[in-house]
Design a protein around this nucleic acid. Sequence first.
RNA 1: UCCCCGGUAGCUCAGUUGGUUAGAGCGGGUGACUGUUAAUCACUAGGUCGUUGGUUCGAGUCCAUCCCGGGGAGCCA
Length: 466
Amino acid sequence: MSAVSIKKTLNGEIQTGTRVTIQGWVRTRRDSKAGFSFISVHDGSCFDPIQVVAPAELVNYEDTVQKITSGCSVICTGTLVESQGRGQTFEIQATDVHVCGWVDDPDTYPIQPKQHSFEFLRDVAHLRPRTNTFGAVTRVRHVTATAIHRYFHEHDFFWINTPIITAADAEGAGDMFRVSTLDLANLPRTDTGAIDFSQDFFGRETFLTVSGQLNIEGYCLALSNVYTFGPTFRAENSNTTRHLAEFWMIEPEIAFADLDDLADLAEDFLKYVFKAVLEECPKDMAFFAQRIEPTAIARLEALIEAPFVRLEYAEAIEILKSSGQKFEFKPEWGLDLQTEHERYLTEKHFSAPVVVKNYPTEIKAFYMRIADDRKTVAALDVLAPGIGEIIGGSQREERLDVLYQRMAKQGMDAETYSWYLDLRRYGTVPHAGFGLGFERLITYITGMANIRDVIPYPRVPGRANF
RNA sequence: UCCCCGGUAGCUCAGUUGGUUAGAGCGGGUGACUGUUAAUCACUAGGUCGUUGGUUCGAGUCCAUCCCGGGGAGCCA
């Protein structure tokens, strides 16, 4: 008999009276001297475990069933029945309980049927997926990723796998990890004493990507609507609840589009994804609302209904200035919004996600389209209550001469970016795109406070365990 | 990188102005009890109090140092 997922045994898909085999890991075992044990088994297929009722008549009851502890892997066969007890609809009356793998030392098995701190669970990242919370996070993460691909597919976007290894050393998005096969203890040198990267694997200096944007623009100016969804690396020494050195980023890029088209896309996209998660993960979301963040479901529902607030950067500054709030950093036109400013806007003033558009030229990247008066560029940030910046994007500078000037002004080497300039030389069009941090999105959806708890094995400064 | 907080049993924590033998709950073991629900009750095992040094008659407690963790800020997604 082939095994079925616990999800199927619990969702009514299988008729009661059917003989089934399930396989998974034990959460708890409770004995009843009335002649049976209750074994709570999960397999990750759904939030709830199934209760296996193991009668004392089983041949291995005393030497096996009664020795089962949390974490053992089991294969159980029996009849699916309506539960005679409270707390669950279905359960399995076992005729066979087989322990696949014992827990060597139950005394030190880290995952107990109790609340653990997330800090502790980070130290056992290989075992934490066995907990309620991380099972739920994992399923939500999967459903979110799937919804993202589905949204783009349904809207005629193509998924472009931009390279992870890149030679562009100044994409303007922070410090990069070096990729090299040179012998660190014995580096080849040029005549001038510099490291001779011509002897390196690629014959030049290379890094891990900090963004697929520049690469994807080429595909945008050919396939019109495209996106990346892949790993991204930042070697910044950021120690916060919302930064990772390795994370996943979604970057759509749309042709024949301006900043408002981009804001429309961001809003429609986020609403679609939130809706999908609420529909496909009701149990997991209910858990987050109950145990992690009380507003987890309510705020997503509210967000799906209401139109996003949109305002100019200049307006945002005015709101902050006349707010009467005491800020550590005074809001001033020309300065970037501080975390405290973003929080005020999203959490207090609007109590909603806010799209801020058209930032001062000086504080934004070279590729963003400059306004006629040169004071601002067509950039936008989507700010969400609780986490701040979730999306950052812009309309790209599509005019060759303007882009060239801006690069020169920033002392950038036009030669390195000649291929990027080609895109403006041959059939340029207005286009725009944004970057969305996947883990930040999961953080927002689940209400999990720390981004290290929504990725399987977090990489942060000073830590790359597992 | 900067600021703040913390490190005591497998886990979550308590530990008074420095003072005898460092405690509880959960988890483990043993037993009792029960269609049980993070079951309940009794008994039991389990600790180099993060490291190194200092102050003191005496340090889990005070000081310094380093290591590790967490939160906040900056950078950003």
